[in-house]
Design a binder for these strands. Structure first.
Lengths: 215, 215
DNA sequence: CATCGAACCTACGCGGGAGTAGGATGAGGG
DNA sequence: CCCTCATCCTACTCCCGCGTAGGTTCGATG
């Protein structure tokens, strides 16, 4: 099914940093495929073509191994998001770029997004905190833009940002699970348009909303 | 901390159906507080003021117990959603009612929503399927309304519905975790307005979107 | 008041997976 | 050529938590 990553030549020795990288890659595959609980350290070691104690010479335990990956990909997402919002001064473009960043994140890097969005370890405070903090940082980046260009209050802007991020995350995940029905570009554009229609010109309409769908 | 539910009189015998209901309530408390994996059958039994074998006389195993709860609350959510959308013919009202239903669901019933939205067992096919199916059914209810009153294609309508549901779920969950900063009504209204602005009059603007935030 | 069955208990088996002890092996420096 | 140290392996221990065997008590029924 999936490529065995790097189980090549079960007898090759590797310098420390190289081995570490490889172990992280193997761990990611297993954690993504099985989730934290169902992932066995034995399988991770096997996948890396190495035996278990080697794993423990690089990471103090299963949890720390997991956290290392979570940290890495959380930062990557926030960074992608920051870049997207800084890539232009046109707010319509910003929305497009922001959604594109979300879709790219979900589409890339061996489905690592599952660690950030679908972790089965969110009951552990350390993990819950990291996930929520990542989510909040993304929302805050967007919130800053909204506040900059409107007179929306801080609290309202924040909640709106949360809603937008939720929209992005959910639709990107859904799109990936049903690959094939719609190309990435079309999906991005569609959802970005929904968001832009929702947020643009917000200041103008405080209570004049009588339009209907049709006509 | 939390009220012990029903650990009253460790020596009272109960008729079968009554006991079953009470066991489900105890299980819900524990599963919600700890998640599936960290939840121990011993603790559930304790919480119900009963010993473990009693649990196994009512449910074949931990998994089935969990699935019973998941099923119950998934159906409740879909039902709430259906009622909301049937409660009026005005689409603006429908949006409001739909979001209100989501917020109500999240706010009610001992945080049972965590079983549906934050399950740490989504790697199990049976659970994943149930969660996604619930999500999809909610989206489909909304999608039907959209298709009814616009000329949006089926595929696009579906993806838009997904995005809207994601928005509702995410913002409701966020709102609950940060209780106190905003009253439920205000949060609902704000997010509903965002959604309505996004979706209403969609047909009219196929590619005329040049407005900016300000002015 | 005896009997029967349902509800309940204490105490255990046991499997699976994290983490470890102790030894082998191979590459580079003297 | 040999010594040293880091890399790696086989083969365990140990704990935790699901599920169960077998016996006990209470209430209902004749």
């Amino acid at each position: 099914m999936t490529a065995p990553s790097d189980a090549r030549a079960r007898g090759t020795r590797l310098p420390r940093v190289r081995r570490r990288r490889q172990l992280l890659a193997a761990a990611q595959e297993v954690f993504v495929a099985r989730g934290y609980h169902a992932a066995a350290m034995d399988e991770i070691a096997d996948r890396a073509g190495v035996s278990k104690p080697v794993l423990y010479q690089h990471f103090p335990g299963k949890l720390e191994l997991y956290l290392a990956l979570l940290e890495e990909h959380s930062e990557a997402l926030v960074e992608k998001q920051r870049e997207a919002l800084e890539s232009t001064d046109d707010n319509r473009q910003r929305v497009t770029a922001s959604f594109q960043a979300y879709f790219d994140f979900v589409a890339g890097d061996g489905e690592a997004f599952r660690l950030v969005f679908e972790s089965d370890l969110r009951n552990l405070p350390a993990v819950r905190e990291k996930s929520e903090q990542t989510f909040q940082r993304c929302a805050e980046l967007i919130g800053k833009v909204i506040r900059q260009d409107t007179s929306i209050s801080d609290e309202e802007a924040h909640l709106l940002s949360i809603a937008l991020v939720g929209m992005a995350e959910t639709s990107a995940r859904y799109w990936l699970n049903n690959h094939g029905s719609v190309p990435q570009n079309a999906a991005e554009q569609l959802v970005a348009r929904l968001a832009w229609r929702g947020i643009s010109g917000w200041d103008l309409t405080r209570s004049s909303e009588e339009a209907e769908f049709e006509d």
